[in-house]
């Protein structure tokens, strides 16, 4: 089975939820006008508001159900066909604000399938997330019509254990919406983009999963969210490498048959399952 994925590398309008929902609507229109048959649309972290909001998260946070309804309204002209969507937004959930990402199906029967709340909230250097949003508690793979998926948001993916848990839960497609401020301009790509590509490739190769890293772009208060999104197949081959700083739509086809091929030739996930009891015993010993 082949999955027609479009990765949208976007520059949100800062702090303007409605404008950014409308922008997703413009993407729906563009896909329809260009005849780009799309199964799955992936957008970056915080793409409905911009990333660096400080206390502004309170103004833009919406429930996942509200976000789904707003997205479905934008999709209504094209709603004969279903479209799956994965995007990051600031979420109001049980009277707290989270940096979250939803996976939903839009179309004739809209359905919210999963919400992931970011666990690792960077609060150092240029980052200050934990001051403004709550910490998610779960990594949960979930089933979709394209296979089993999981979401990790930005720093969640920097910890190898997160992707390991998702893979052990059976994830085959790993969505990683991100917002990464560019730094280190020593080579043709910023250091952070090079790191992200290394990371995406390592996760894909280690666990035999597709990794879809949708990165926010545009400057926010002098900090250049770099873009440079990528999609890697389960053998570690880059299917897509987006330019830095440029807002763009990037179609790519994922062939699920690569999962079997990758896991046959590099059965690391299977090895991990076998060694898991030993690892868990070791892990318990280092727990505080």
């Amino acid at each position: 089975m082949k999955i027609k994925l479009v990765l949208a590398q976007t520059k949100p309008k800062k702090g303007d939820y409605s404008a950014n929902v409308a922008k997703v609507g413009e993407i729906f229109t563009t896909l329809a006008e260009k005849g780009l048959k799309t199964d799955l649309l992936c957008l970056p972290e915080a793409c409905l508001s911009g990333y660096f909001l400080q206390g502004g998260v309170l103004d833009v946070a919406r429930t996942a159900e509200q976000a789904l309804a707003d997205l479905q309204r934008q999709y209504q002209p094209y709603a004969k066909e279903p479209l799956d969507i994965c995007l990051g937004f600031y979420e109001a959930y049980q009277d707290e604000v989270y940096n979250a990402a939803l996976y939903a199906t839009l179309g004739p029967e809209p359905q919210l399938i999963h919400v992931h709340r970011k666990l690792f909230l960077p609060t150092y250097g240029v980052f200050d997330e934990e001051r403004f949003v709550g910490r998610g508690q779960r990594i949960q793979a979930f089933d979709t019509r394209f296979g089993r998926c999981a979401i990790l948001i930005c720093e969640d993916a920097w910890h190898s254990l997160s992707a390991t848990i998702a893979a052990l839960q059976g994830a085959e497609l790993l969505f990683v919406p991100a917002a990464s401020p560019g730094r280190g301009l020593h080579s043709p790509e910023p250091d952070n983009v090079r790191y992200w590509k290394r990371l995406a490739q390592n996760i894909a190769e280690e666990h035999g999963v597709f990794v879809i890293n949708a990165a926010l772009c545009g400057f926010e208060g002098g900090k250049g969210l770099s873009g440079g999104s990528s999609v890697v197949d389960p053998t570690g081959v880059f299917l897509l490498e987006a330019p830095v700083l440029q807002e763009c739509l990037l179609p790519v086809e994922l062939d699920r048959r690569d999962l079997l091929r990758a896991r046959y030739y590099s059965p690391l996930l299977s090895d991990l399952r076998a060694a898991l009891p030993t690892l868990l015993r070791e892990l318990r010993e280092v727990l505080p």
Partner: peptide
């Protein structure tokens, strides 16, 4: 080891030009 302050000058130019467009015009 390259000089610690060495920059990729093409990328830096792109970066600063986009910075000006975003911060002056868009924002």
């Amino acid at each position: 080891t390259t000089h610690p302050l060495a920059l990729h000058l093409e990328l830096t130019t792109t970066w600063l030009v986009e910075f000006l467009r975003d911060e002056v015009v868009r924002r």
